[in-house]
Design a protein around this nucleic acid. Sequence first.
DNA 1: TCAGACCCTGACCGATCGGTCAGACTGAGG
DNA 2: CCTCAGTCTGACCGATCGGTCAGGGTCTGA
Lengths: 195, 195
Amino acid sequence: MARAVPDTHGEILAAAARQFTVTGYRGTSLQDIAREVGCSKATVLYHFANKEALLAELMAPAIGVLRDLDDRLTGLTGTAAQEVAAEGFVDLAVRFRREIAVLRGEFPELLCQPAFAHIQQISDRLRDALAGHSDRPGARIAALVLLAGISEACGEFADITDDDLRSALLTLVRRAVEPVDAALPQQPTTEDKDS
Amino acid sequence: MARAVPDTHGEILAAAARQFTVTGYRGTSLQDIAREVGCSKATVLYHFANKEALLAELMAPAIGVLRDLDDRLTGLTGTAAQEVAAEGFVDLAVRFRREIAVLRGEFPELLCQPAFAHIQQISDRLRDALAGHSDRPGARIAALVLLAGISEACGEFADITDDDLRSALLTLVRRAVEPVDAALPQQPTTEDKDS
DNA sequence: TCAGACCCTGACCGATCGGTCAGACTGAGG
DNA sequence: CCTCAGTCTGACCGATCGGTCAGGGTCTGA
């Protein structure tokens, strides 16, 4: 059979994805990646301008989907925004479990890099949408906890199929999100003083 | 006035806490800490055997409380376990917002260090308790999302008082956790197929 | 006055990091 | 045959990391 063209570029990308999910971006050296691929560190830097470019190419698809979701959210408010945000983010988190796991806690530093310039604003808008654009602390807190928790947790359930994980998460979010409509007031919690 | 005894040890600890929460454990060098304190790096290593020992002393109180919670959970099952786990963890997360933020995503590596040997097992037990010791995927997923989300999110709400944050989180957890007892069935959500 | 504990430091160490560079190898085209 | 572009590499760079070490100040108690 014809010797397959050695797709070194793709192999490096795949190896980087694996390593990043295990030891994080900063915790993975170019040497580590080169070792797994079976090439030299210089080869990695021949195919990618620098370490950041490698990460950027790895995250590009996920970021594209995140941008699409952001577009779909513009103009929506209240329950409609919550539902779109919930479905959209759950789907994104499940599909890109691995990519999201890469950012494990390295968000603050990574977001400073130009390739990820607008992520912070997008995820802020996403959180607002999930909170139904309410400024009640309970709504904001619930939204952030859910987004952060889903991001963090998705990578842990490698044994669960995408469909199962998606439906379980969506059920959870719908149950957990603070309803924005005052139309259905729930029982007041222990104390509700607006000082 | 009498010159106050310079509590270098405490100053280093405080500076480390500040820096760790901003740039993470690995992202903070001993040099950074020394610079903030206004001493040499060698001084930092005079007061603490090594970087890990500095982190360990910083986390000790939080770990103690976590251990206590773990003790209180032994023997509990079902709803009782869920309630104790929820209250205990929310309280812990709020009180030690800063300490928890330090571990921002560096859990996997840090847990390998001897000082944090049993944390993983404790948090596994905590998750099981919050899931009511159910092995249903939905329950496990909800528990993990909530624990991870609360850990991640707590540090973000510096503008909210402990009490407000605690009650908001507790309300969220009670709303979001998957009820374990079939005894009190709530209205079935959109779809409830047990495949 | 002196010894010793305590506190602190500059200089230094080996390791590792991301990144550069000149050059070797290879295969296709003229 | 030669050329040339594409691919890859070992050697090397400066920076930074955590950590060591010998020694200098300072205070206290005998």
